[in-house]
């Protein structure tokens, strides 16, 4: 699924990375705790989070995650947008809650295949 399609489904605002909307992603991960992202994500995914701080961007960068969606209507501050831009990421913001945002993407065919098995 392209980032452009994700932005449409989530009726999202693009804060940075407009030039990368044709990027393809195969899976998504929704989490507010960054250690969980680091524990479970294996592949390049789109990260949906309610955590709007530099640590979310830092974690995404370390994990080679190129697309971050802020849920629950949260908008990134300028320093976060700058940080994401420097790292070549796409930032989206959606008014949908985590549950609804994940649900809409799942319903449209995106899956959670990028995470390791959970015992």
């Amino acid at each position: 699924m392209t980032v452009r399609r994700i932005a449409e489904i989530l009726e999202a605002k693009v804060s940075t990375g407009e030039d990368q909307l044709d990027l393809e992603v195969n899976a998504a991960c929704g989490a507010d705790l960054m250690s969980d992202v680091m524990a479970f994500v294996k592949e390049k995914v789109v990260l949906l989070t309610g955590l709007v701080n530099p640590q979310a961007i830092r974690t995404a960068d370390l994990m080679d995650i190129r697309v971050v969606v802020f849920v629950r209507g949260k908008a990134p501050t300028d320093d976060i947008v700058d940080m994401a831009r420097e790292n070549g990421m796409v930032l989206l913001s959606t008014k949908y809650s985590m549950f609804l945002a994940c649900g809409r993407l799942y319903e449209s065919g995106l899956r959670g295949g990028g995470i390791r098995d959970i015992a």
């Binding site: 705790l33 960054m34 250690s35 524990a39 989070t49 701080n53 974690t59």
Partner: peptide, 24 residues
């Protein structure tokens, strides 16, 4: 142990304290 954390709650607001640090 995964999920066991002694981090104060304020760190969870920053996205940490999931009890996954050392296991990770």
């Amino acid at each position: 142990t995964e999920g066991w954390s002694t981090a104060p709650d304020r760190y969870r607001e920053l996205g940490f304290g999931a009890g996954m640090g050392l296991p990770n």
